[in-house]
């Protein structure tokens, strides 16, 4: 999970254009200024391309924090 978190952190820094972002499993959209409904989609596209995975619409809308997002990524990677 730690390795995943680091990779996702890099993607956040890149997409949101903010070097200071430090994610943890409990981080939610409320904790990151630039993370809103619009950047959310850009983050998802970047994550899907990076890990070569595809989320369902329901999965994307069900996450409440980074931890839940990481679990989804891990599940997808395990399936591949």
């Amino acid at each position: 999970m730690k390795e995943l978190l680091a990779q996702v952190n890099e993607i956040f820094i890149d997409v949101l254009d903010n070097e200071d972002i430090v994610l943890s499993e409990t981080t939610s959209a409320n904790d990151v200024d630039e993370w809103d409904s619009l950047s959310h989609i850009q983050l998802i596209v970047a994550i899907e391309r990076h890990f070569k995975i595809r989320f369902t619409s329901k999965e994307i809308q069900s996450w409440n924090n980074i931890g839940e997002m990481l679990t989804s990524i891990q599940d997808k990677l395990n399936q591949n």
Partner: peptide
């Protein structure tokens, strides 16, 4: 609207950048 219209639509259309 962002939650119930825009977000589902933009997820659906996300491959078109």
């Amino acid at each position: 609207f962002t939650e119930y219209v825009f977000t589902p639509l933009s997820i659906y259309f996300r491959d078109w950048d």
